[in-house]
């Protein structure tokens, strides 16, 4: 190491990372692979919570199975439910109905939310129950070795489709917007600042809010498409993403292979638990 380069050692450090107060520091560094986007999502989420000034004690995190389910559990210092594969939204519905005062946040992967728990997602969005769902979409089942998932792009090789994927991917954000959610957006781990603002917005929205976050998997997905560095994915996201307002003016051919990012839906429909409580009060009086 050169002498003229200033790298502060632990004794010279002015102050620790300001977001470490939200994390269980004794288990750091995370178990994520080097360059995994899950850490960036955790970073953006902690930043959003910090800026909103929410007490993590007022939040409940519900996760399923998979790499992205490790984002809040165990790293985020809050109450977590680590549930069965594909069922985080079903568990979160129960939590929200019994404790409407808590903010319920579901952070899980594409296999969990769009694949195995797809029906839970559609019906939670249709009910418009107040919860924030962050779907971390890495285009494959990364934890088990890179199998094809419902969101894998068309024509991409994976471990279980070595001669290219012949299925078309599920557009989860558009699906949730059509199903009736109050707030839907899609961002990538390249767009860190808009992603953080979008998480802030989703946490404040009363009703079902959904953010699809495209996140790199340089290990399980990258080995099959020869993108072994995290930066390769981020450059891909940067070059292939199109903002919503620009995408409206583009034809279907031009949008082929592009990633539409931005806010896809914002509306104000009645929230599920509020309606449930109103009914409860009406019939208890009589």
């Amino acid at each position: 190491m050169k002498d003229d380069v200033i790298i502060p050692g632990p004794e010279k450090r002015l102050k620790p990372h300001r977001l470490l107060k939200f994390l269980r520091q004794e288990i750091l560094p995370t178990t994520f692979c080097p360059g995994c986007g899950c850490g960036t999502v955790l970073n953006g989420f902690a930043q959003a919570v910090d800026e909103l000034g929410i007490d993590p004690k007022d939040m409940v995190f519900v996760t399923g199975i998979g790499c992205s389910s490790w984002i809040p559990s165990p790293y985020f210092k809050g109450d977590t439910l680590h549930t069965t594969h594909g069922r985080p939204i079903a568990f979160a519905t129960g939590v929200k109905i019994m404790r409407p005062d808590l903010k319920v946040v579901v952070i899980a992967g594409d296999g969990d939310i769009a694949g195995i728990g797809g029906n839970h997602l559609i019906h939670a969005a249709r009910r418009n129950i107040d919860m924030t769902v962050l779907m971390v979409n890495n285009w494959n089942y990364g934890m088990t070795g890179g199998q094809v998932s419902p969101t894998t792009p068309f024509g991409v090789p994976t471990t279980t489709t070595p001669y290219d994927n012949v299925e078309h991917p599920l557009e989860a954000a558009e699906l949730v917007a059509a199903a009736g959610a109050n707030y839907v957006s899609r961002w990538t781990t390249y767009h860190v600042f808009p992603l953080m603002e979008s998480i802030q917005k989703a946490l404040q929205v009363d009703g079902f809010s959904f953010i699809e976050i495209l996140s790199q998997c340089p290990v399980s997905y990258g080995k099959m498409v020869d993108m072994r560095k995290a930066s390769d994915f981020l450059k891909f996201y940067r070059d292939q993403s199109v903002r919503v307002h620009k995408a409206k003016a583009m034809s279907a051919e031009e949008l082929e292979g592009k990633i539409v990012v931005g806010k896809l839906m914002e509306r104000e429909r009645t929230e599920f638990t509020a309606s449930l409580r109103r009914i409860n009060e009406r019939f208890r009086k009589g």
């Binding site: 620790p16 990372h17 080097p34 360059g35 850490g39 970073n43 930043q47 995290a230």
Partner: peptide
């Protein structure tokens, strides 16, 4: 692993992109 080192500290404008994009909470700007 090979961590990053600061080579042009005087150029830094404090945009915090490195801080927010780091998956491991390893960089912070004071």
């Amino acid at each position: 692993y090979y961590p990053p080192e600061v080579v042009n500290e005087e150029k830094c404008i404090g945009c915090r992109l490195c801080e927010l994009v780091c998956p491991e909470f390893a960089i912070t700007i004071c």
